[in-house]
Design a protein around this nucleic acid. Structure first.
Lengths: 231, 231, 231, 231
DNA sequence: GATGAATGAGGGTTCATTCAT
DNA sequence: TATGAATGAACCCTCATTCAT
């Protein structure tokens, strides 16, 4: 075989996996201007990548465009990310990380179920739907099948936790008699299903028939919490 | 915007759009063996395309693989479809058409709401979830953003009709007092949200945590129809 | 990792190894014009590759130039060879194979040692030095270190055989008293050393001081066979 | 023609040729610590370059690796050498210079031919074969065709001299009757051919069949000096 | 019609070289 | 002087599309 010239990558490039991001070592002195510029570029690349990947999908997105949009040269991308795939994965990771922490607590306050549910929905809307994280979730949905590691990461770090927390909340609600139905305890996914649908609808069909997410989620709340306004 | 391949000559080519498929003219005599062979090949190509597009996504799928899987030469694809994009669009169209008709009636029978809902859900599971149509819906979700025409087609031919029908059913249900809540009338999407979620979950997270669609949909039914088993 | 779009090579490309060359299947009918054209192109590519690799070295040679020189499109190269490296390896193989057979016999005739030696040297000059095989041997010398497989192939198929045959010839010569020295039997390499040197000299220093290979080899013969013209 | 990298701006840059090396001006005061550090770095770079060029060849070697191995920054290389090519050429020059001087005398002592030959061979083994100069000679062999200037330098400074000296020694030997054959006088290359072969063999085939250079050279000596142990 | 060899534009990746710090 | 982040030209390889057979 003898791969004489090319490749020999793996030992020299920033990690392509899903471990801790590289964050090119801050050269010297605390917060050197150099390191700051570098971090800014990295962020610019990530932001540009999100836009391009969202607009074209992973396979069709061109790193050339990412670079142009980020205002850097194509080669610069490779100073921060091992390859296109690593850029994609770290992008998702980067955007999702903040969420993970927040999720943990959200459910652990000892307040009535309906309050928690409302709070969660509000959080989804303000922290995801109204931000570019919406695009991140969309990317997981559209590209996840081709990136099992990402799907797993998302499941482990987000879904599993949300699901678990929800299940407990619902169980508590059932025990307290706050909700009359154990469906949500058995399938916490039912709680978020409309949120996912909204995400998709928004991306594909909003121009034909706009969907008011807040209203949708409120209606969903009413429905499952059985506070429906009697017809 | 569909930046899938190179040329983007789609407008110069025959039936790249969503008009009626070409159905290569039956050579001579009605139902000639020639025409039959041709139709078979076309179907084989469509079937192969569905598999490949589902597995790799539109951009990353290779027509070479489609051809091999269909058992035809690469060039043959171009005898039936103008280009990769047309193949994709006609594929979706081809798979969706049968559904459209069915949908119309489904709602128009004058039976209690809960019966209709159960029937719909059963239809979704048996006609979509348990068939390769599941993949078609997934493709619309994952590629729709890049194929506005497809998204529109799907909205117009499927979503809009389903939505409209559902809305009427729900309204009737509310009027008759069969359901106490108008949420579903205002947002028929709430009815199908779990189905969509199941589709996505199944593709991405089933290996981490399997989701029993039937049970999920039944729980969903119970929940929104308020027949929940009291805790 | 998820290598979604790219690569997926190994199962679709012609063998990159050193096994039997692919020789794209002759389509149909004996010696179809199609297959012939294909074989011609393959040969043209190999010839062009030899020139380019010889002129620039493996790493610096550009497949673009190979294609242009061969009168084919860049992509055509990949119809015949898995990648640049496979092209290189098959090139060496292709050029060397004919030699291998010839070598076997050369030594096995039962004639006096000096006849065999002269014959061998003549063969080297006419079959290697005066042909483009000279470039092949040079490539092995210059690139062999980066292509262990090639070096091994050359050693196994050519060197080991030549060495073995020479050793026997020399041993026989010593036994018969045709040569008075066992140096050549112990180090058959001494026999070919000047040939190698000539190859190198010819490539690097001929313009400063031309070297008459035939004369050199003749002198070498005289020297080691001790037929030196007394001073 | 050296088509190694991109720009090929070699003519616009300082000392890309084979003239005297730059030896970055000793900043101030004779033998300042500054100058010493600089010279050390230069040497480290040269040493690293030899390793990298030997391992990968000129075209495939990466200055990045040279820098890392030398323990300096990539930019530092350019403080000492105009470009990659200049580094390569000066490297060869640097390593070869010491030899040149030695060679001159070696032959000029008035001792019997066989003594001189043995001495030369010993010198080759100890001064070249057992040192990293072996790699330098190998580089000339493998890259010389792409660096005519280097080949010329090597020819002029080393080969031509050795050849000339050898020729005289041999002529003398013939006159004195110390050797019975004028082959070596006409083709001094015959003397060194096995040394060259050993160099190449060692790099490519030693792992398949080790070659004992000393024994080889001794046998060679015996053979051409006709002191062969009678079989 | 059917084939699949051939094409060549395009994009990911590398790396010599530059230059602000 | 030394650094190493940044640049961008170049090159390998892919694959949608064409077309002679």
């Amino acid at each position: 075989m003898a791969k004489p010239a090319t490749k020999r990558i793996s030992d020299r490039r920033p990690n392509a996996g899903l471990g801790n991001a590289p964050q090119p070592a801050a050269a010297s002195g605390r917060g050197g201007a150099r390191a700051k510029r570098s971090a800014e570029r990295r962020d610019a690349i990530l932001a540009a990548a999100l836009e391009e990947f969202s607009a074209s999908g992973f396979a069709a997105a061109r790193l050339d465009d990412v670079a142009r949009r980020a205002g850097v040269a194509k080669g610069t991308i490779y100073l921060h990310f091992a390859d296109k795939e690593a850029l994609f994965q770290e992008l998702i990771r980067h955007e999702l990380s903040p969420i993970v922490g927040i999720l943990e607590q959200a459910a652990h306050t000892d307040v009535p179920v309906d309050v928690i549910v409302h709070r969660l929905i509000e959080m989804f809307v303000s922290q995801v739907y109204d931000t570019h994280r919406k695009d991140v979730i969309r990317l997981i949905i559209t590209e996840g099948a081709r990136f099992p590691k990402l799907a797993e990461f998302y499941y482990r770090e987000v879904l599993a936790r949300v699901t678990k927390a929800m299940r407990e909340v619902m169980r508590r609600g059932v025990e307290r008699g706050e909700i009359k139905h154990d469906a949500l305890a058995r399938f916490p996914q039912l709680l978020v299903a409309p949120a996912i649908l909204a995400l998709i609808w928004n991306g594909l069909f909003d121009k034909f028939e706009p969907l008011d997410v807040r209203a949708l989620m409120r209606a969903h709340c009413d429905l499952i919490l059985q506070n429906g306004r009697a017809a």
